[in-house]
Nucleic acid binder design. Structure first.
Ligand SMILES: [Zn+2]
Ligand SMILES: [Zn+2]
Ligand SMILES: [Zn+2]
Ligand SMILES: [Zn+2]
Lengths: 167, 167
DNA sequence: TGCATAACGATATATGATATTATTAATAAA
DNA sequence: TTTATTAATAATATCATATATCGTTATGCA
C-alpha cells in the first residue's frame, strides 16, 4: 500500500481507512514490545490526529477529545501528547505550537525536516543526511554538542499553490 | 574590534561597552537610511536585549522595561518586538518563545541557523549555503514554495560543557 | 492482599500573544 | 497657524498555550 503521510492523506485518494488501521496496529505492536501502556485515552488522541490530516493545536485536540471524554481538561491532552512525543509517535511543530503524527515513528534514527503549508497546515516530513552532516560540522566548529534539532520550513504546498493559480 | 555576537559577549572579555555602542550606532544609521523611527522605547528594548547576552522572553523584557517605563504592558513589548523583527534587527527563537538581537542584521540575505544552549540560553548564529541549497532541493522535489525557515539546534555550548566536565 | 507505580481527574495558575479602543505625538498640508 | 493625517503609545480585555498541584483510581507485581 502507498506510504501514508499527512500529505498522502490530504491530497490523494488512497484507502485512508486501511492505512489508518495499519498505523494504529503498528503503534499498538510497538507499545506492547516496549511494555508501555497505550490507554484508550492515548489511543483516542492518536485517532484524532490521524483523522485530522493536518497539524493540530493542543486545544483543537482537546475540543475533539471532549466530545468523547467530556471530563477532559488541558492537562489531559498535554499528558497524552507528552507520552506520545516521548515515545516518538508525535512531533511538536514548535513554530506553530501544533502537533502531528510522525509518519516515520518506526525509524526514529533521523532528524525530521518539516515543510509546513501556512495555507492549509498540511505538513510534509523529509530527511537529509547532507543537512545532518552539515549541522554536525557547524556544531563542531563551535564546540557545540547537539541534542535536538528543530527544522521547520514554512511556505505553500503544491496543492495550495495550484489553487491560487487556478483562481 | 572583535565581532560581537551573543556568544562573544557571554564568554570572552572584549570591550562590551564599545561593542554595545557600535551596534546601537549601526542600528540608528540603518533606521535613518530606511526612514523609519527608532523611538526611545524601541531603543530601550534593544538596549535590554544587548545587555542580556542571552535569549529573552517577551515577559522577561517587559519586566525590565517596566523598571524604566512603569506604564509598559504586554502590548508595549510585543509592538516593539514586532517592529524590530520586521526590520531584521531581532529574531524570534520559535522553539523557546524567546527573542535575540540578530548579530548580522546588516546582511539579511541568509537563512539563520541558531545553536541554542539549553543550559545558559546563549545562542550562536550560523549560516550555510549548502543547507540552504539542500532545503531548496527538497522543496522542489515536493513542489513546495519556501517562504521562511526556522532552523534551531538545541544542545550544550562549549562553555557549559566545560563546566560540567570541570566539576 | 498489600504495595508501588502509572495514569487520570479536577482546579488553579502561569505564560505567551492579540484585539480593541482611546489617547497622544509627530508630520504634512492648507 | 490651523487642520488633517498618520504613527506611536496607553489601557484593558480577551484569547491561546502550557504547567503545577494534589487527590483519586487503575494496573502490575511481590
Ligand atoms: Zn518524524
Ligand atoms: Zn497547503
Ligand atoms: Zn540573524
Ligand atoms: Zn551554555
Amino acid at each position: 500500500m502507498e506510504k501514508c503521510t499527512n500529505e498522502a492523506h490530504h491530497h490523494s485518494k488512497h484507502n485512508h481507512q486501511l492505512c489508518y488501521e495499519h498505523t494504529m496496529q503498528t503503534i499498538e505492536k510497538l507499545c506492547a514490545k516496549r511494555n508501555i501502556r497505550l490507554t484508550p485515552q492515548r489511543k483516542t488522541v492518536i485517532q484524532l490526529m490521524l483523522n485530522a490530516d493536518k497539524a493540530m493545536s493542543a486545544y483543537d485536540l482537546l475540543d475533539q477529545l471532549k466530545e468523547i471524554e467530556p471530563q477532559a481538561k488541558p492537562p489531559t491532552i498535554y499528558r497524552a501528547l507528552d507520552f506520545l512525543i516521548e515515545q516518538g509517535f508525535v512531533h511538536k511543530v514548535e513554530s506553530i505550537n501544533c502537533y502531528i503524527i510522525c509518519p516515520h515513528f518506526d525509524d526514529p534514527s533521523h532528524i525530521s525536516i518539516l515543510f509546513i503549508c501556512d495555507k492549509c497546515q498540511s505538513i510534509i516530513e523529509e530527511h537529509s543526511p547532507i543537512i545532518e552532516a552539515q549541522l554536525q560540522s557547524l556544531a563542531q566548529k563551535n564546540m557545540f554538542i547537539i541534542q535536538h534539532s528543530v527544522l521547520e520550513i514554512h511556505g505553500t504546498c503544491q496543492h495550495c499553490a495550484n489553487q491560487i493559480v487556478g483562481q
